[in-house]
Design a protein around this nucleic acid. Structure first.
Lengths: 195, 195, 195, 195
DNA sequence: TATGAATGAGCATTCATTCAT
DNA sequence: GATGAATGAATGCTCATTCAT
């Protein structure tokens, strides 16, 4: 069927691009190389994606879809608010470490430097913040935590996690440190910050 | 003076490069553009710097020199350990926000992807961590804080600050939030994490 | 015809390159100049040839194909061995003088200095030597000539002819000498050497 | 003394250039690299030599001086004409193999491709031809050989030797052949050609 | 749908040469 | 005598993109 094969190539292009992103980073990503690895012509990529940025944006969208679905699921299944908060943090950090290609384009890009900058693509990050923010608010209502400005506090948690993930991905953290230990401590401290 | 005029172009090249770095990011930095903005030929840049990497390395070194000198100064002038810790954090964050070009090449690069960027250049980042680590240890000795693993904890503080700085620089933080308020809260939370 | 027009530019690139090779020599051959003379962009050349070396390799191959086909034809159509030997020599010398561009890249390069020029390309030169060598052996069997080491002797003949061709091409031979007379004498002497 | 130090640097430049010629060939010879190896500035080279070609021309002159002095010496000390002929050939071949850098610029260049072409530089090659030519004439007078056109015949000998030397220098000769054996055979054949 | 062909601007780097000092 | 500084043109090559077919 036409639609099926259409989707198949499109899917392959996206997957190949993701793999190339992990290997070479976004600044070394080239349409030529993608087409070579996919086994199609450059023109074909332009049939499915308006241009290079549009291709990357599709991946960004996919990434957010994935991250948000994971965190939503956690949000709905954890009823102990403190546990839920921790679980949401674990989700975010694990997502970043397991999907470096998504993480790089979702959070380690300066959107203003992407020539065709669709602000709303990047703004989806806020939904994850809202899940955390809402959890902080609920915990405060339950008097488990004491958070005055949940949305700002959610940002603090996010920046903490982002710093951790991005420095780990870039291998800038002293290799002599136990990585998992560092992550566990981070999660623990996050809870501590709002006691 | 001969020496001054001798170094004048070299200095201009470095400064122009810094400006271009803020505007376009390192992946869009080109020797041609630098020479155009400096008003000299490309060859002239190669007279002062062996190649593009050497030029960027010089800036990385300058950046670390600057950051370290600032933090060392703070380290020596603040005798109250808790105040010193906060001041060091303020230093780091302010340095990043005021010198986005330095910050980008010092902390936002993935050295593994730039094979020709010598790891030891980046390892100078550790000196800043040691200043924080030592302060945590001292505060623990004074029983002002309770830090079991000062070096790991310094890393946690660093990741927190790095996340904050890098997301602010990339303008990924919700613009409706008060930026200074966020920074102040972050610093406050850092102290809280180790009570 | 589709195939013909498809190959048209490729063919033009090869031909232009050959002309430039005669005029300027290989060390002054540039992709830019080729594209300028062809009337296409540099990129187009890279569409047909992986890089500059690949383009030159194609010409080297063409040259050997041409020379070998000429000499094979002569080898098969001349049954008098002494005549065959002379005809093979005439073939070689005429080929060199008529196709200076091919001759230069086939025989006047130092493969060791062009690391990327694969040795096996040049080894095809040996086939021409084998035709001469075999003819010498046959003439010896027929007692027309007396050649103890045909392969070594073929090399001697080759070096003689190569010296003649390359000095003629470089216009190093005294212009007051009759060029054709010189060539004829050379051929005559070659036969004499093995009496 | 001024003159002495002047000559010293000039000498060093010439020697360094010769070494670089053996290593990289004339097409990879750069003023920058010469100055780096000499330990002086590029400007200094231009003080002693008008330009790059002038520097190479000086070496060409030196090379001819050397080769001619060797062959003149042989010419004067060998009284048996046939022996003298062979000795002159050995001189030429040995000179080429022992001084590849000189040989390349003296005989393997297309002078017309050197932008500033001083024909008389290259014409000195004729003096070596005259020594051979005169020897052939003398041998003919002595009825040891039978050479009708000594000058043309000297050219034939030259082309033979040049082919041998240049292919050996470029390592184009089948490595399985005994190099010295090939040279010896060549010299032997040269005498045979004019019996 | 998909491709092959083409472009033009861009890249980092090297070069021979000049010239004031 | 010798240098340090500068230039402008050139090098091979890659890129995102376009478009007729």
């Amino acid at each position: 069927m036409a639609t099926a094969s259409e989707n198949h190539i499109r899917r392959t292009i996206l997957d190949v691009t993701r793999h190339l992103l992990v290997q070479n980073g976004i600044s070394n990503l080239s349409m030529r190389m993608i087409s070579r690895k996919v086994g199609c012509s450059v023109g074909t990529i332009y049939f499915y994606f308006r241009n290079k940025d549009a291709l990357v944006h599709s991946l960004i969208e996919e990434g957010f879809e994935l991250l948000i679905s994971i965190m939503e699921q956690t949000y709905q299944t954890h009823h102990d608010t403190l546990e839920r908060l921790k679980a949401l943090c674990v989700d975010y950090i694990q997502f970043g470490l397991k999907n470096p290609e998504y993480y790089e384009i979702m959070f380690m890009l300066n959107p203003e430097r992407m020539e065709r900058y669709p602000a709303e693509k990047y703004r989806r990050a806020r939904h994850t913040l809202e899940l955390i923010s809402e959890t902080l608010a609920e915990a405060t209502r339950e008097k488990v935590l004491n958070v005055k400005e949940p949305y700002q506090s959610a940002h603090l948690i996010w920046t903490f996690m982002h710093g951790l993930v991005s420095l780990l991905l870039a291998r800038r953290i002293d290799a002599r440190l136990d990585q998992q230990g560092l992550i566990d401590s981070a999660i623990e401290k996050i809870a501590l910050m709002f006691r």
